[in-house]
Design a protein around this nucleic acid. Sequence first.
RNA 1: GCGCAGAUGGCGGAGUGGUCAAUCGCAUCUGACUGUAAAUCAGACGCCUUCGGGCUACGUAGGUUCAAAUCCUACUCUGCGCA
Length: 410
Amino acid sequence: MSSRPLSFTIKHKSTKSRARTGVIKTPHGDIQTPAFVPVGTKATIKGLTPEMVVSLGADCILANTYHLYLQPGHDIIKKHGGLGKFMGWSGPTFTDSGGFQAFSLGVALGKNITKFTSKARPGYDEIAIQKTGHKADPDAPALQPAKVDEQGVMFRSIIDGSAHYFTPTKSIEIQQAIGADIMFAFDECTSPHEPVEYQKRSLDRTHRWAMESLKTHVDNPESFSKQALFGIIQGGRHEELRKESAKIIAEMQYNGVEFDGFGIGGSFAKEDMMTAVAWVNEILPENKPRHLLGIGEPADIVMAVKEGCDTFDCVMPTRNARTGTVFMRDDLAEFGYTNLNMRNAQYVEDMKPIDAQCECYTCKKYTRSYLAHLYRAQEMLAGTLASIHNLQFMIDFVKRLRESIERGEI
RNA sequence: GCGCAGAUGGCGGAGUGGUCAAUCGCAUCUGACUGUAAAUCAGACGCCUUCGGGCUACGUAGGUUCAAAUCCUACUCUGCGCA
């Protein structure tokens, strides 16, 4: 077998947990793990230039196949020479496959569930879901939900409502055009509200789609030589399904080629996530990187790292930044941080930085009062400054995590 | 000075006899946000409450009516027009 464009080396293995530190080498640079991967869905970390993201210490970023396919179109990204050139980011890149949109724009559409849902809600095991409200344009006709069938997913465009059909092959072909270092197999992220029978059926389908993704990847020599592909484990909150999925994806091969790493996916009631991660990582081979998709809060990352996960992408730091919530270190808190809502009245005249312990540009230069003003005045710099801070916090957070693993503390 | 129009909750502005503590927008307050339909969304927003309700309110003062933000009278103020 020819050498792969991606390698993973474990530097230090904890004796207290499944935690490890390591380095993922890609054609565009190295990723020190555990790593936080900022999300730039539409080929931009919202509100930040790539230079800002570099200066925060981020090794890599993640973009989304579905969104870039719709706009500007993957052909245009290919003409630029790939995602990195297109967006001016020279480091490693990931693309998600669109599998999460099968869920977020499908059964979850217009419902009060996303990556997490509350198990406490009545009727959790049925279809329990109430309305929510995303309505960016209240006058726009409601978007029809995506529909999953055996071959793929019929999505509606979030831009104009038009229909688009993704198969695993289609997703991989788009990801090949986008050209990220690490691609993900096309999967179905199931709703935690689906019964176990559905989870089972969907899982079998996701496994078939994984094989189709792998095949499409391997059969294109040009992209195969440059890109890596991660398989995705699903299985909801069911131990037997999670373990089966981990085993099947770990062993899956096409023409002697296996996945380069793994993604752990799903939408969860909060209390179910870590058990699912533990089941999966018990089975996955140690020598390949494990990406926990869409997670998370620093507290979640600590727990997942202890269970052996290596990389994490999450919109939360940047989304919260745009909506006013920032992290602050707090040595008295369980996980060492707390959230502040900068729009609250108490910060209007607060002359302190967001976090006196933080070395980020925002904290070195601006007061909470200024941030509070920017939010109230709806100035876009608010989201930028808070995104700088929140991402700096996440990146520092995982850095400290790496250090404590290497010191043998966790 | 005369004529016309108007004065509504922090602001703008609906409402023109009962179902009005008063639509709506803004502002304000609080909350949510975890592979981004998200610079978004939700709730609260006169005072008090044992959450049943009670009280004070639609420029001011009177009046009509079972009942007035809504009708009448006077006054005060504002805008426009004419002198």
